[in-house]
Amino acid sequence: MRERPLLVYDGDCGFCTSAVRFGERRVRPRCEPVPWQFTDLDALGVTTDRAEHEVLWVTPAGTVYGGARAVAKALLSAPGAWPLLGALMMLRPLRWAADGLYRLVAANRHRLPGGTPACAAPPRTPRGRTPS
């Protein structure tokens, strides 16, 4: 069993990689950041589709948090004042705002600093259908 949580992110996305590197330098969460492309997603109980669309926080016990909740968990694990921000992000009214902001950033990460067209997440398809 791992001792530290994993922060699973899109290693092909320049924006995502830059954000994780910034977090490592400034926020210093207590986790192991790993690109999903170099992770055994099946062992984590995570689908490729989910990993392509959101950052994931995977606890040593195997609980998976995605999107804004993963960011909040990373902040909660950090030293200093960061856990306060993480705790606020988990409160219901602010959690909804954090979820919306996360989805907005994730959908437009290819347009943000460090992003490239390769950063655009593939479109989601309804279950049982393949993209045309």
Rank of each mutant, 00 (worst) to 15 (best):
V55F: 09
D49R: 10
W57K: 07
R28A: 12
R28S: 10
E24V: 15
W36T: 00
V20Y: 05
V34P: 01
C31N: 08
L41W: 03
G45W: 01
P29R: 14
A43M: 07
R25I: 12
R26T: 13
P60L: 06
G66F: 08
F22R: 05
C31L: 15
L44M: 13
P35Q: 04
V55N: 07
G23L: 04
Q37K: 03
R50M: 11
Q37I: 00
E52Y: 09
P60I: 02
V64A: 08
G45M: 02
V46I: 14
F22K: 04
V20T: 11
A51Y: 08
A51M: 10
V64Y: 04
G62R: 13
Y65S: 08
T59Y: 08
A61P: 00
E24F: 00
R21C: 03
G66R: 08
E54A: 14
Q37P: 00
E54I: 00
R25D: 04
H53C: 10
E32L: 10
Q37T: 02
G62M: 13
L41F: 07
L56C: 13
A51W: 09
W36G: 00
R50I: 02
E24C: 10
P60H: 08
L56P: 15
L41I: 01
A51R: 07
V46E: 01
W57D: 07
P33C: 02
V58T: 05
P33V: 01
A61M: 03
V34E: 01
V46T: 06
L56E: 12
